[in-house]
């Protein structure tokens, strides 16, 4: 049975692998050029410590040359799950139902369950592997640019977060099973493909908006009222503001930030003293620390995986009632 499905999926599989080989080759070529630029511009230090550590023409030129390309590369990792859902998931059952070839399988002695499971695994596992390999290759390119590339915006910037960790695999699983269930229910390849793309994009936008609320934020409090202190490891800042002397959040700090006429002879305002006299005692930030990024990846991944389980059950139901 595995052989039968593999033989059926062969054109899809070949296309996937060909696409992967071309993309990986392109990424590796660019990566080599990036490595060469880092060496030529003597930028190894900046890559580790960021643009602030080494103002200079070489660093700016490097960013002009590579920053956007790296960003687009992250974008392609975000798009990969949709491609799998639309071109591997959606036709999986829809094409069989459209061409009537499911009856060929149903009139042999294999059970429908075995047919479904085999199709699901033989078509799905290579697709997941392709996405994983592509994700890792793109990431190895991003690492070369380090703090001079998109990684400088922190682990939580959406293109970085969503192209890293378990996220691409979780999205792929979601898109693939979504395509599968749409195909099994609507029995039309084109309908299933369109629906998969639309629902996938909607679900991704919706859930990425909700994922910040999946972790209880940590409150970081500082006496530095100017707010110039950089937070460790660039966490995701959900909210920030001022606390009064009692440690309670100041609901509307704007009037208390009025320091007009407090300037000294040169007109320089001592903001900190002014704020403190106005009753603003401390500054707080509610953040998701950088070291909880993995936890957030897993939480969001679990939500997508949960949907994937529902979609699999839906497919089983639709295939079982198919004549």
């Amino acid at each position: 049975m595995t052989w039968v499905v593999w033989r059926q999926q062969r054109p899809v599989f070949i296309t996937l692998v060909a696409g992967l080989v071309v993309s990986v080759a392109a990424v590796l070529l660019w990566r080599a050029a990036t490595v060469a630029d880092v060496q030529a511009g003597n930028l190894a230090d900046c890559v580790l410590r960021g643009l602030d550590a080494c103002r200079g023409k070489a660093a700016d030129e490097f960013q002009d040359a590579w920053f956007d390309k790296l960003h687009i590369a992250q974008g392609t990792v975000l798009a990969a799950p949709a491609v799998i859902g639309v071109f591997v998931g959606a036709p999986l059952f829809a094409r069989e139902f459209e061409q009537g070839t499911h009856t060929l399988a149903f009139t042999q002695s294999v059970s429908r369950t075995r047919w479904m499971v085999t199709k699901f695994l033989v078509a799905g596992l290579p697709a997941l592997a392709v996405v994983l390999v592509y994700q890792l290759v793109v990431h190895s390119w991003l690492d070369v640019a380090g703090e001079l590339g998109p990684l400088a915006t922190g682990k939580f910037y959406f293109t970085t977060f969503e192209s890293q960790g378990v996220s691409p695999i979780a999205y792929t699983l979601f898109a693939y099973t979504l395509g599968m269930v749409a195909g099994a229910v609507f029995k039309r390849t084109l309908v299933a493909m369109t629906l998969t793309l639309a629902v996938f994009i909607a679900a991704r936008v919706l859930i990425s908006g909700l994922r910040e609320s999946m972790i209880t934020p940590t409150r970081v409090v500082t006496d530095d009222l100017d707010g110039r202190t950089v937070l460790d490891g660039r966490p995701l800042v959900l909210e920030s503001g001022y606390l009064d002397a009692a440690g309670a959040v100041v609901a509307d700090p704007t009037p208390k930030m009025n320091c007009v006429g407090r300037g000294d002879a040169q007109g320089i305002v001592d903001w900190e003293t002014c704020y403190r006299e106005n009753g603003l005692a401390q500054r707080y930030s509610d953040v998701i620390p950088a070291d909880q990024a993995t936890a957030l990846h897993l939480l969001e991944g679990a939500v997508f995986a949960g949907f994937a389980v529902l979609f699999v059950l839906g497919s089983v139901w639709a295939v079982r009632r198919q004549v």
Partner: peptide
């Protein structure tokens, strides 16, 4: 079956 479905 009537349509003789086969893997083309």
């Amino acid at each position: 079956t009537q349509k003789r479905p086969l893997y083309d």
